[in-house]
Design a protein around this nucleic acid. Structure first.
Length: 270
DNA sequence: ACAGTAACCTGTTTGC
DNA sequence: TGCAAACAGGTTACTG
């Protein structure tokens, strides 16, 4: 599910309910996510004042003076604001209780994470090797050029690699490559500087546009109010195999690249 | 160091 | 209609 725009939408949605409040409790109903929910997590952070809510890549970070909550939504996770006493549904695994309300993690596939960490975030194993934020200035054509030399992996896999740049998942990788006229199978090391310039611009554009629309809801993404995002209607190639290209009319092709379904126009993308 | 694959899970869609 | 297979937005551990 959630790529950067969906995580950013979630971050903006939950922030007003959390910032400046004290953590009342954390209720864990099912600790078996991709990693087990940190043992005794409630005792670790009960009573702590929430200083900030932020995002790094697809990770949500909730900071207190003693440590940080680190949440990842995996493939099927979502966070909602609910009354703390409302009955949980089948896949509602964890509640972060703040007063009479709770931020509730629902994650049917349990690929998500809900962790407590007292080490410096810059040192955290899940965060320390991440590449730049695509919406930061340090993410540039020069960066992509520098780290792609002699790399033979397909450009689509390359930009989905969080060590290269964070937050670009399958949907937006397909879209950004279409917008840039780059065939997703091309070797990263053979992309020209001009192509990288366009790719950087379009990765930023597609992510910003999707954030503006509240993210992309294919099936189960919901914001903190349980409402879907509206960017799906603006997707140009993702999920459109066999349809006419919006630019030239050619039929959109699909192909599995690196185990992920990929979509492109063979006329517009070389 | 790099590239490719399997694995972690469950729900929904597709095809016979 | 029923059942099994295929597929899904992410990440990482392992292999060669």
């Amino acid at each position: 599910m959630p790529e950067l725009p969906e995580v950013e939408t979630t971050k903006r949605g939950i922030e007003p309910y959390l910032k400046g409040k004290r953590i009342t409790n954390i209720v864990v109903r099912n600790a078996s996510l991709r990693q087990p929910v940190t043992a005794n997590i409630a005792e670790c952070c009960k009573g702590q004042l929430i200083l900030s809510v932020s995002r790094r890549g697809k990770y949500l970070l909730i900071a207190t003076a003693r440590g940080n909550l680190l949440i990842h939504l995996g493939m099927s996770g979502s966070l909602r604001i609910v009354p703390a006493n409302s009955p949980p549904q089948k896949h509602d695994h964890v509640d972060l209780v703040v007063g009479k309300q709770a931020v509730r993690l629902r994650d049917p596939r349990r690929f998500g994470l809900f962790l407590w960490s007292e080490e410096r975030l810059a040192e955290h194993p899940l965060l320390k090797n991440l590449g730049p934020e695509p919406l930061d200035a340090v993410f540039s054509a020069e960066h992509l050029w520098n780290v792609s030399r002699k790399r033979r992996v397909a450009i689509k896999n390359f930009i989905m690699n969080s060590h290269i740049v964070v937050g670009v998942g399958n949907i937006y990788a397909n879209e950004a490559l279409f917008m840039s006229g780059i065939r997703p199978t091309r070797q990263a090391g053979k992309i020209s500087r001009d192509d990288f310039e366009r790719l950087v611009i379009n990765i930023r554009k597609v992510l910003k546009d999707a954030i503006r629309q509240g993210g992309t809801t294919l099936k189960d993404f919901r914001n903190e109010e349980g409402k879907p995002g509206y960017f799906a209607q603006e997707l140009r190639v993702y999920g459109r195999a066999g349809e006419a290209c919006s630019c030239c009319g050619e039929r959109i092709k699909s192909k599995v690249i690196g185990q992920r379904s990929s979509f492109y126009c063979s006329k517009c993308q070389k």
